[in-house]
Amino acid sequence: MPSSERAGRPAGHGEAHQRVAAVDGWFTLDGAGPALIGQRCKACKTFVFPPTASWCPNPLCADTEMEEVELSRRGSIWSFTNACYQPPAPYVAREPYEPFSIAAVELEAEQMVVLGQMVRGTRVEDLHVGDQVELVLDTLYEDTDREYLVWKWKPVGAEPAGGYGDRSGDRSGGSGPKKSSAGGNRMAERRRDG
């Protein structure tokens, strides 16, 4: 939705908003267990995201029958960053602007990496390559009568913002990026073997 449609109308805070997807057909709207919708080639079984292909991308496969499948809801962080400055339109930013984190997440079963914002309030200081995350739906932006949803990644077992303190230490027995990066290394090697 262009940002121009948000302007010029009275704000309707407090009213019940209709929750709609910010993009059609890229994820399920299942509040409890949402999933990205990808495609899988019926012939060679490779995956595609977003689900907009009408052909198989494998150079050794000329199939055009792509079936829709739900992708893994969990993955591990391949890399991450944040957006300290407000991205330009067509991004619709909160006002005042709130920096957000963004992650590239490796899905093990599909052996692919998918981008997504991290849930609101996630700081890069809390993230490490190799950390487990799961898919959730979150607000991308709102106008007077609708709330536009998008997929985001959420640290697995995350507590409310500020409660991440000693998570990595608990999980890995070591701490900090060193330990997690070894996990990232293993993942990369496994993918090459496949």
């Binding site: 910010a22 890399s79 957006a83 991205p87 991004y91 981008l115 990026p177 990232g184």
Partner: peptide, 29 residues
């Protein structure tokens, strides 16, 4: 239908977002 338009709209992913993902990955490895 343009991934370049959609990545700004749905992710707020600028060019530096991608450069930073490579950089952070490099630092981890």
């Amino acid at each position: 239908d343009d991934p370049d338009w959609l990545r700004f709209h749905l992710l707020g992913a600028t060019n530096p977002t991608y450069f930073a993902l490579y950089a952070r990955r490099r630092m981890a490895l």
